[in-house]
C-alpha cells in the first residue's frame, strides 16, 4: 500500500527512569488525512509526535514511515535522513525550543539550508513563507523577543519552508489570542486541501472539528482509548469528563452562582 504514511504497531516508549509514556499504540495514517490526537496533559501526545518525526525510537514495537522502518538511520545516514526530513515536519510544542537561531530569517532558512537547497531557492522560500504567515516585518528580529503568537507563526514558517508532505503540530494553538488561533487553523485546513497530511496534538476541543476528520483520544493508561469522527467523540459528555478533557466552570450569573460545563462545540461564554 503506497498511500500509507505512518504505521505503528504495538509501540511502547518510556523515558529513562520514568513511568512509561506510551503503552502499546497501534495507528495507521494515510496520505492526505487530517488527524487530531487529543488527551489530557502527560498522556503521551508529544512523545507520539517525536516518534513519528524519527527523533526518538520505540522500545517495543515499531514505527514505519513511507513503508520503511524508522530507526537510527534517521540520525546517522545523511541521505536517508534528508529524504525523510523533506517529507515530514514537526512544529514543536515549545516555540522557544524550536527557534534557536539568532534571527527569524536564519531560523526560517535553517531547514532548507540543511537539506541542501540552493541559496537562491532558500531566499525564494524565505520570502514566500514569510508572506504566507504574515511575518515579513519580523525577519530581522531576534526570535526570543517576539510575542507568543509571533513565535508560533515563525515556528510554523520554519517548517513550511521545508514544504513537507506531512505536518506534525504539537499544541499549535495553546496560549494564543483568537485571531492568531484563526490564522493557524486556516493554515492547517488549507495545507490539508493542498494534499498535505496533518497530525495535530491538542487538548483544545474547540478546534478539532475543523482540523480533524479523525480523532484519537489518549487516555491516562497511555493508550488510545477511542477513535472516531470529531462529532461523535465530542458529543460523548461523560467520556470526555472521564478523560479530563472537559472541565466544570463555576460562574456568576445575575449574582447567582452556578456550575456549568463547557462543551467544546458551544462557544465559551
Amino acid at each position: 500500500m503506497s498511500d500509507i504514511v505512518f504505521e505503528l504497531t504495538e509501540v511502547h516508549y518510556s523515558y529513562p527512569g520514568k513511568f512509561p509514556a506510551l503503552c502499546g499504540i497501534d495507528l495507521t495514517v494515510r496520505s492526505g488525512e487530517k488527524i487530531a490526537v487529543i488527551g489530557a496533559n502527560g498522556t503521551g501526545k508529544s512523545t507520539l509526535l517525536q516518534l513519528l518525526d524519527g527523533l526518538i525510537f520505540p522500545h517495543k514495537g515499531q514505527v514505519s514511515a513511507f513503508g520503511e522502518r524508522l530507526s537510527e538511520w534517521a540520525h546517522t545516514d545523511e541521505n536517508a535522513a534528508h529524504r525523510f526530513r523533506k517529507r515530514v515536519g514537526l512544529v514543536f510544542q515549545n516555540a522557544d525550543i524550536q527557534l534557536f537561531c539568532p534571527s527569524v530569517k536564519e531560523d526560517i532558512a535553517f531547514g532548507p539550508l540543511q537539506l541542501g537547497f540552493s541559496t537562491k531557492e532558500v531566499e525564494r522560500r524565505l520570502l514566500e513563507v514569510s508572506g504566507v504567515l504574515d511575518i515579513r516585518h519580523l525577519l530581522d528580529r531576534v526570535p526570543h523577543q517576539l510575542s507568543i503568537g509571533e513565535k508560533r507563526r515563525v515556528a510554523i514558517a520554519s517548517v513550511l519552508a521545508i514544504d513537507p508532505d506531512v505536518y506534525l503540530f504539537d499544541e499549535p494553538t495553546a496560549g494564543l489570542d483568537p485571531s492568531t488561533v484563526r490564522h493557524i487553523i486556516d493554515f492547517i485546513v488549507e495545507a490539508n486541501l493542498r494534499g498535505k497530511t496533518i497530525i495535530t496534538a491538542t487538548h483544545d476541543l474547540h478546534i478539532i472539528g475543523e482540523i480533524a476528520d479523525t480523532v484519537y483520544v489518549f487516555g491516562r493508561n497511555k493508550q488510545i482509548v477511542r477513535e472516531g469522527a470529531p462529532e461523535s467523540v465530542l458529543s460523548d459528555r461523560s467520556f470526555l469528563e472521564a478523560n479530563n478533557l472537559v472541565h466544570i466552570h463555576r460562574h456568576h450569573h445575575n449574582s447567582k452562582e452556578h456550575l456549568h460545563q463547557h462543551m467544546p462545540l458551544e462557544p465559551h461564554e
Binding site: E78, R85, L90, Q114
Partner: peptide, 13 residues
C-alpha cells in the same frame, strides 16, 4: 535541529 535536517554539519545563511 535534527527535525529540520541537521546531521552534524550546520549550514547557515
Amino acid at each position: 535541529m535534527l527535525s529540520r535536517g541537521y546531521t552534524g554539519e550546520p549550514r547557515l545563511l
